[in-house]
Amino acid sequence: MIDTGKCETCPAHNAGNLIKLGVNMKDFDFIVALAGNPNTGKSTVFNALTGLKQHTGNWPGKTVARAEGGFIYNKKKYKLVDLPGTYSLLSTSTDEEIARDFILFGQPDVTVIVADATRLERNLNLVLQVLEITDRAVLCLNLVDEALRHQITVDERALARELGIPVVPAAARQGKGIQELLKNINDVATGEYICKPHRISGASKELKKAVDKLQEQVEKEFPELPNPRWVALRLLEGDQKIIDAVTSGDLENITKRKILKEELPALT
């Protein structure tokens, strides 16, 4: 019993893919990706979490090199990877490709999506796309102070219910919400909190039919895949990386990870 899922819960489980993506894999328990629209304060959140003083600037696209840092919370070591800021994950631009491939192939234990509370609707476009790829995410609702200044309030509990992931209101520039964010990252990473991510409903009948059909085939061949619908969508789009991953069988390495908590009863 103990053996089942051992690979999936071992920290080194996904090391091969991550090394391919250029992440230094020395000595940590969980990997956390940081995604979000440009200029939502991702670098500020990164600095607040890691204690690093990476230069932040109030202009979009400031982060040109991917930054990596680490932190320890609750005796667990986390590696944090700051992805380029993007509005979407569907186009062919380099930035979006880096972010999309990292979340899919790198399989971070948690993806933290930083969203701008003053522009939530537009930011949600990216959030929904991330939730198609991964089911382990935390939304950091940043800039709530600024939203308040503009007379905007967001019901974070309703938002968490809608999205099926933890939502943490924050004002990272003032260091507000960072402790809560750490706790929620920890909860999702360790399986304390099990996400039930919102999936895009899909109005177009033809599209739905096509995706369903392809998804079924993908599921049959890669039964362990956590996001067959996303893979089906990308195949329809003609994403070369995904086509290659199907041909080479790399997709097999992307598996649903068993959650630690589920294993606990078996241990006793």
């Binding site: 609707e121 476009n125 959030v127 019901d155 895009i200 409903s201 177009s204």
Partner: peptide
């Protein structure tokens, strides 16, 4: 696909932002 995403985003935002 983008329309679907926009629609969901608009719905969620309408429910949660005031």
């Amino acid at each position: 696909l983008m329309e679907d995403i926009y629609k969901d985003a608009a719905e969620i935002s309408a429910k949660t932002v005031s």
